[in-house]
Design a protein around this nucleic acid. Structure first.
Length: 109
DNA sequence: CGCCTGACCACGT
DNA sequence: CACGTGGCCAGGC
């Protein structure tokens, strides 16, 4: 059986996002086998202390950072992404390779 | 146990 | 694009 808790599966899903790619909260939840639980992903990240966790690769469904523009966290997240080769436009939005209508179509690579 | 909050999301206007 | 609205759910009090 699955001895892994929901939190463990979510953290694993986040760690599984490849360098240079991003995933929405909802997509992470879905990959962790917890559809509809984007808020749980968000809560975990807000509590997380593990510095090795690639939290910067997790974005909102609209491709923007969950942090308010102008804050240190917002800048750091975008910087880290750009450093990995992710393209961010002037509005702070990540450009998906293909159009993703909903989180069900997860297409961001 | 109810009530409020939050690094969310989809949908309608 | 900007707001509301309703849904989701774990935690804190």
């Amino acid at each position: 059986m699955n001895a892994l808790s929901a939190a463990d599966r979510i953290l694993a899903a986040i760690r599984a996002i490849p360098r240079g790619e991003t995933a929405a909260y909802g997509v992470v939840a879905q990959r962790a086998g917890l559809p509809g639980r984007a808020r749980m992903v968000a809560r975990l990240l807000s509590q997380n202390d593990d510095s090795t966790l690639p939290w910067h690769r997790v974005l909102r469904a609209d491709g923007r950072s969950a942090f308010p523009p102008g804050t240190p966290h917002h800048r750091e997240q975008l910087d880290r992404l750009r450093r990995e080769g992710v393209r961010v436009d002037d509005h702070g939005r990540v450009r998906p390779a293909k159009r993703a209508k909903s989180v069900d179509e997860e297409v961001w690579g």
